[in-house]
């Protein structure tokens, strides 16, 4: 039987990178096939609780930079307000915990071929809620925000508004995430690339502004865009928006999801493989 030289020369590396630093852990699962590959990206477990409550009222200029998030549940905010009067108040709560750890990963190769699989069930819940009321009159304010939740996002931006009244609240939740990949080591192809997070994004906006306003959102199903939109308003507008995106996924591959009908030994006939685990690479 001739030996496929490509199969010999190719390097299939399945690795689990672990970042261990108590109490947080970071893990990245990836499969490298030559120059291509598959990865879950860095997933971090953390016990985090963050509360921000604040308000400001006054006259002058104002700037703001916000970046926060974990496990791709994040918010980004930029505000630049030129001289004017501003009244703003906000509340942000971020919480993540590692009460349920990762189930898996399961690695293996289906018998009789060169198809490898990797399955990761991750139950690291994250919750991020953010609300802001802002009232500005002045020479001009530019303000942009975006909330992302594992490939979904929603946001709004206002440019050069001399009059901006904005009440916004957003709630993001990630319950768990399920990854599965099938890779054919013979043909160097990724047969299946599945990413199914159980997530919720709820965004409410009530604004009144002049200048230019842009609203956008994207909802992903697996890694594919299922819905997206961008809209712009130039002039004086009252904008009300409520956007709710949910993605619930039942992992049918987990034990207990299937009736115990056929398996005799209780274990599936997978060929066990040896994987490299290299915590130093991250």
């Amino acid at each position: 039987m001739p030996v496929d030289s490509r199969a010999i020369n190719s390097l299939l590396l399945i690795s689990v990178m672990i970042l261990l630093s108590s109490p947080a852990a970071g893990r990245s699962y990836q499969i490298t096939e030559g120059e291509s590959g598959w990865t879950t990206g860095l997933r971090q477990s953390n016990n985090i609780s963050l509360n921000i409550t604040g308000s400001a009222i006054g006259e002058g200029s104002y700037q703001r930079y916000t970046e926060m998030g974990i496990l791709y549940v994040h918010m980004r905010e930029r505000i630049a307000a030129h001289r004017g009067t501003l009244d703003t108040s906000e509340h942000i709560h971020l919480e993540a915990n590692t009460s349920n750890d990762v189930n898996g990963p399961n690695y293996g190769k289906y018998p009789g071929g060169q198809i490898f699989y990797i399955i990761v069930n991750e139950s690291w819940p994250v919750s991020l809620t953010a609300s802001r009321n802002m009232d500005y009159l002045g020479e001009g304010i530019s303000e942009s925000e975006i909330f992302g939740n594992n490939l979904d996002y929603v946001g709004a931006a206002y440019w050069q508004a001399k009059d901006l009244k904005k009440d916004r609240s957003c709630s993001l939740a990630l319950q768990n995430a399920f990854f599965r990949a099938l890779i054919n080591d013979a043909s160097h192809t990724i047969i299946l690339d599945e990413f199914q997070p159980n997530k919720l994004t709820d965004y409410r906006l009530n604004s009144r502004s002049d200048g230019m306003a842009t609203l956008r959102h994207r909802q992903a199903n697996d890694r594919v865009t299922a819905a997206e939109s961008t809209e712009s308003y130039i002039g004086r507008f009252m904008i009300k928006r409520h956007l709710n995106m949910t993605n619930t996924y039942t992992n049918l591959t987990r034990s207990g999801a299937w009736p115990d009908c056929c398996a005799i030994s209780g274990s599936l006939p997978f060929e066990e493989m040896v994987f490299s685990v290299n915590p130093d690479e991250y």
């Binding site: 009067t85 501003l86 009244d87 009232d135």
Partner: peptide, 10 residues
């Protein structure tokens, strides 16, 4: 009155 007092409630 749905605006801030600093805006004179417009």
């Amino acid at each position: 009155l749905d605006r801030s007092p600093i805006q004179h409630y417009t």
